[in-house]
Design a protein around this nucleic acid. Sequence first.
DNA 1: ATTCTTGCAAACGGTTTGCACATAC
DNA 2: GTATGTGCAAACCGTTTGCAAGAAT
Lengths: 139, 139
Amino acid sequence: MKNRDEVRTLFKAKKVPLTHQRLAVYEELAGRRDHPSAESLYEALKKPYPSLSLATVYKTLQTLHEMGMVARVDSPAAQARYDAIVSTHHHAVCSACGAISDLFDPRLDALPAPKAPGFRIAGHSVHFHGLCAKCAKAR
Amino acid sequence: MKNRDEVRTLFKAKKVPLTHQRLAVYEELAGRRDHPSAESLYEALKKPYPSLSLATVYKTLQTLHEMGMVARVDSPAAQARYDAIVSTHHHAVCSACGAISDLFDPRLDALPAPKAPGFRIAGHSVHFHGLCAKCAKAR
DNA sequence: ATTCTTGCAAACGGTTTGCACATAC
DNA sequence: GTATGTGCAAACCGTTTGCAAGAAT
């Protein structure tokens, strides 16, 4: 979402070395709207950059994420978490300790239908992130 | 969230054999509100059921999920997906093909603050699930 | 010149699978 | 009795890491 010069400026401002690989990964990602995985970016980039490695794509995405230039769509949680409550409810996830607490709030159950032409909505969930009471106190 | 008799009835209705392991996994999960991982359930269950294996816990969670008795809190997506759009927006995820599309809707950006005492909210995201236009047409 | 990054391959951790034995019905 | 589930260990797959060689400033 930024042109090449803006990218250069951003890297310079944050004093992060701008390598060809980083520029290539960023431009490939910014040019796509399908929320690709690391593997998918790697596949797309390895024709123009045959020496690029998947590890570099991962490291670069991590760097760009820390710079605030890239977001992760899926929760970064490594392992799946389960819930015996199947009915509609929402969650608050602590970004420090990973604790997940339930939120029951009818106002969140009925959200305005988003403009998504052709998409047949089956349901939704709202995911708040921040610091839980314990972790908020600990800082 | 169901007592033992209700569980028996549900299994019978769906013609799924109810084993001790399945009952144990379900009751352990239903008795907890911390959204445990498979590993965490296994740890808790291995004292009372020393012969239980982690693989069985996974298979059982899968079975319970298919029966609609258990939900996964985190997205079941195996791999992380990235996004060069860092500003607030939301997503519609196709449960058939995994496609993720962007939703920009200010009404979703400002949600009522949920009742979560002590939780310091940093942000939120709304995740619609259902069938994308292509997959909806294909059925 | 120095510091940081790359690429490779090996390690890692959560999850899945193949198979012989055991259990539910 | 038959079909299905369990437990074990190995495989799997996405991701991370250690390290020697290379690039950015």
